[in-house]
Write a protein that binds this DNA or RNA. Structure first.
Length: 601
RNA sequence: GGGGCGGUAGUUGAGUUGGUUACAACAACGGCCUGUCACGCCGUAGGUCACGGGUUCGAGUCCCGUCCGCCUCGCCA
């Protein structure tokens, strides 16, 4: 290769040439983006990831015959003189900005016709894009996301290392733990019948680093969860994982704020005010219906339950018969035109998706509530609604009457849907107002599951309860125990979350017990953690950001797939490598694994 | 596990109530052109309409099943 490339090591990039003087000799390597044989001369548009440059070959040149064979996507090297720059007097150059008159031209590699055009639009069928991912990645629209990703991790490392964080590694082959997501399992050959699990997060290892005395840890860590995929969920993803000792939540939050501000400043040239907003989980659920609120617009939820406590309106009365029954409402401004069809079908479907039976509605017309459910409401109820919700003339009131968690969530999703449809919230952030950042704090420690008839940890079982809730915890009133946990939410999407951890072995045992994890099971699954806690663990806590989501939001990408170089499909396959694939029986034998396909069972 | 949308030339799409030889643009290939820059003009080639059944005189079109991609509910401490 070196001989082949002899004399053609790149000395300039296409982008570099912008300021180059006419007459200067330059040397470039890259791909052919376009070519045009005009008989008497030839244009070749050459491209690398820094820019494009136009190459000129004259008919009289000995290079002409060779150059005329060149086609799109061939890899070439060119040496020549800059003959014109940018928009010079004759206005002949617009795109390439620089034109180079070739004196030497080498073809390093030919290329098949690409299955899709390598231009700055990610427009082909995603199946084909994923199969030829290396070509898709050449396209600037994808290429720049990957570059931004590197830019962001560089900033993160710089900020954290300036604060004396150590980049420390944790094992990838670990132990499967109960709770949480489904693990990716790796069979052990040396220990027949036993399995490693790939980490869902480095959670316990980073806590052990704290106990080991490394009081500031970070890692850009790959994590794995074997659950169904979504637009914003891949089976392997990357966390910015951090942990500190001897801290309060504000300490880690301050460092995160500095990190986020630096990223926004350097990547998007947006300056964010500090400190970030803070809102408790209870308040977020009450005002926005969700635990990751988009705070860039109003139209908040209202609790109108008491107005209808003794209502004659059957729909609402029926919902309130349930102990957890509630009625929540939003007041949609008049600028949003909603037809009956919009409400009952389109937005109603959004509500139904999240478990509600539908949307109740009414409109403010000539100073009174009219249409929809209005004629079934009493005058007192209507007056109370107008007083509380202050509907605009021509505005709409939307209601969900259901169990608390369904009503809040469904109406919260409808709220966001209306904002998206009416372009209240830009996808690409260009100024400070486009950024809705808030901490959500004081999450409930436990979450009751009707289905499993038990409590689950809302964050994870190593999260510390608030000390003020200790009496409630001791009393077994788990629904009223809050955790020292906090999420950072950007534009309605959870960017990251963390907590202060339990550093006391007795507390940890009691939390396990509350989750139905008995002493024996706790010992079997977490003996190393319990042992470690027994040797004097410092108070500690941390946070983890989803790097992929962060890049997705900052780049304005439509999907996590557009910020991961080699992503998986909805069914967790890689269309390029065709992973996962079959393995030889011999490999399975060594692992003592026999596969039984469903039809053979 | 459930729901929705989609699969037609290399690519992106059109294809009406089922009806002759499945259409266009771009790309490719050949020719022409000395200043293009979404270049232009002329021509050529390119199809198992995802796959398998069914209904019908006749299916890209209607029905059933399967596969694949995307969105989504459940799931994701």
């Amino acid at each position: 290769m070196s001989e082949f490339l002899n004399g053609f090591k790149r000395t300039h990039t296409c982008g570099d040439l912008r300021g180059t003087d006419v007459g200067k000799t330059v040397r470039l390597v890259g791909w052919v983006q376009d070519y045009r044989n005009l008989g008497g001369f030839l244009f070749i548009v050459m491209r690398d990831r820094y820019g494009i440059t136009q190459i000129h070959v004259d008919a009289g040149s000995p290079l002409f015959e060779q150059a005329s064979k060149i086609r799109a996507e061939w890899v070439i090297g060119v040496e020549g003189k800059v003959i014109s720059r940018g928009k010079d007097a004759n206005q002949k150059l617009a795109t390439g900005e620089i034109e180079v008159d070739a004196t030497e031209l080498r073809i390093f590699n030919r290329a098949e016709t690409a299955p899709f055009a390598i231009h700055d639009r990610c427009d082909a069928d995603e199946k084909i894009r994923l199969k030829y991912r290396y070509l898709d990645l050449r396209r600037p629209c994808l290429n720049r996301n990957i570059i931004m990703r590197s830019q962001i991790t560089r900033i993160i490392r710089r900020v954290l290392e300036d604060h004396n964080f150590l980049d420390l590694e944790t094992p990838v082959l670990g132990k499967s733990t109960p709770e949480g997501a489904r693990d990716y399992l790796v069979p052990s050959r040396v220990q027949p019948g036993k399995f490693y699990a790939l980490p869902q997060s480095p959670q316990l290892f980073k806590q052990l680093y704290m106990i080991s005395g490394f009081d500031r840890y970070y890692q850009i860590a790959r994590c794995f969860r074997d659950e169904d995929l979504r637009l914003d969920r891949q089976p392997e993803f990357t966390q910015i994982d951090m942990e500190m000792s001897f801290i309060e939540p504000e300490d880690i939050q301050n460092i995160c704020e500095e990190m986020i501000c630096t990223i926004f400043h350097e990547v998007l040239n947006i300056d964010l005010p500090r400190p970030f907003k803070r809102i408790s989980w209870d308040e977020s659920m009450d005002r926005f219906g969700v635990d990751a609120p988009d705070i860039r617009f109003g139209m908040e939820l209202n609790n109108v339950t008491e107005i209808f406590r003794n209502t004659e309106f059957k729909l609402f009365a029926a919902a309130l018969e349930n102990k957890q029954g509630t009625i929540r409402a939003i007041s949609v401004p008049a600028s949003v035109k909603l037809s009956r069809k919009d409400i009952e079908q389109s937005l109603g479907d959004v509500a139904k998706t999240y478990g509600a039976k539908g949307l109740a509605w009414t409109k403010m017309t000539n100073g009174a509530l009219d249409a929809g459910i209005a004629k079934q409401l009493s005058d007192t109820e209507k007056a109370a609604l107008i007083d509380m919700l202050k509907p605009e003339e021509g505005g709409t009131l939307l209601f969900v009457a259901d169990k608390l968690n369904i009503a809040r969530n469904a109406l919260g999703r409808v709220r966001k849907e209306i904002a998206v449809r009416n372009n209240w919230v830009p996808k690409v952030m260009t100024k400070t107002e486009d950024v809705g950042l808030t901490w959500v704090t004081d999450f409930p420690m436990f979450e009751w599951s009707d289905e499993d008839n038990r409590w689950y940890a809302m964050h994870h079982p190593f999260t510390s309860p608030r000390s003020s809730d200790w009496p409630a915890f001791e009393a077994g009133d788990l629904g009223n125990v809050y955790a020292q946990a906090y999420d950072l939410v950007l534009n309605g999407i959870e960017l990251g979350g963390g907590s202060i951890r339990i550093h006391n072995i007795d507390v940890q045992k009691k939390v396990f017990a509350a989750l139905g994890i008995g002493d024996a099971e706790a010992r079997a699954k977490f003996s190393f953690l319990l042992d470690a806690l027994s040797f004097g663990a410092p108070p500690h806590g941390g946070l983890a950001f989803g790097l992929d989501r962060m890049v997705m939001l900052l780049s304005g990408a439509d999907s996590l797939r557009d910020v991961i170089a080699f992503p998986k499909t909805n069914k967790a396959t890689d269309l390029m490598t065709e992973a996962p694939g079959d393995v030889d029986d011999k490999q399975l034998d060594e692992l003592y694994i026999k596969t039984v396909m469903p039809e053979e069972q």
